[in-house]
Amino acid sequence: MVKIGVLGLQGAVREHVRSIEESGAEAVVIKKVEQLDEIDGLILPGGESTTMRKLIDKYNFMDKLREFANSGKPMFGTCAGLILLAKRVIGYDEPHIGIMDVTVERNSFGRQRESFEAELDITGVALDFPAVFIRAPHIVAAGENVEVISKHNGRIVAAREGNVLGCSFHPELTDDHRLTAYFVSMVKEAKGTQSV
């Protein structure tokens, strides 16, 4: 069984754990840097990207997160997690982890009170995925190796680049685990191709 970590510094951690377990994988809440060595894939949950960045720096996670990404192990960023993965964030000079070739705009769907749900067509996942948008970012531009897998009203809201998956919404806040299951299959595939 593959082990998938959820970065447990801030955000919707418990909900991701439940979704991973419902998708047939083992979930581990990551609170220490050393735990990254024990997992096959990592989810960066939604939350508040600025707060998450401060905690990543405080607990010295940044180098290890970049190393994890460069090792080829899959990473999945949801909402604030997508902002952490992006190489470019509008209004910021420097990216956070900066491994996904996308430009992201924060809070581009409005503030908390403009939260909404929408049914999305996600390539390879579902034609009717119930997506929950809360102060969501969106992908303004994607590099040539990035596969856009979902749009909402013309805006890119989910994309994949190799072993990196990112989405603007919160898949863990519904009982539909198909997107998490898609990530679990990415992790299984990556683990199968790595030398054991």
Score class of each variant (00 low, 15 high):
Pro45Thr: 01
Met75Pro: 00
Pro45Gly: 03
Lys73Leu: 04
Leu173Lys: 04
Ser115Leu: 06
Ile83Gln: 05
Arg178Ile: 05
Val140Leu: 03
Arg178Asn: 10
His138Trp: 10
Leu165His: 12
Ala126Asn: 13
Glu119Tyr: 15
Val104Cys: 07
Lys58Pro: 03
Gly72Met: 13
Leu42Lys: 11
Arg111His: 12
Glu94Tyr: 11
Thr103Ser: 13
Gly162His: 03
Ala131Glu: 02
Ile139Leu: 07
Ala126Leu: 06
Val157Gly: 07
Gly41Arg: 01
Glu172Cys: 02
Asp40Pro: 05
Gly46Asp: 04
Gly77Gln: 03
Arg53Asp: 10
Val157Trp: 08
Leu84Lys: 10
Gly91Ile: 09
Phe68Lys: 06
Arg135Gly: 08
Asp101Asn: 13
Val140Asn: 01
Ile134Asn: 08
Asn70Gln: 10
Met100Gly: 07
Tyr59Val: 10
Ala136Gly: 14
Phe61Arg: 10
Phe76Cys: 04
Gly81Leu: 00
Phe116Ser: 02
Leu65Cys: 02
Pro45Asp: 09
Lys54His: 10
Asp176Trp: 01
Ser150Ile: 00
Glu161Phe: 11
Arg111Gly: 04
Ile97Gln: 07
Leu84Cys: 08
Pro74Asp: 05
Val132Pro: 03
Arg111Ser: 07
Leu65Trp: 01
Glu144Asn: 14
Pro95Tyr: 07
Glu117His: 15
Ala142Phe: 10
Asp57Lys: 12
Gly81Phe: 00
Pro171Ala: 14
Arg88Asn: 15
Phe109Trp: 04
Ile156His: 05
Leu127Phe: 14
Asp101Glu: 13
Leu127Trp: 09
Gly110Leu: 00
Asp121Glu: 11
Asn145Lys: 15
Leu55Ala: 13
Ile139Met: 13
Met75Ile: 08
Val89His: 00
Leu179Ile: 11
Asp101Tyr: 13
Val102Asn: 09
Ile122Phe: 03
Tyr92Met: 13
Glu105Ala: 14
Val102Met: 02
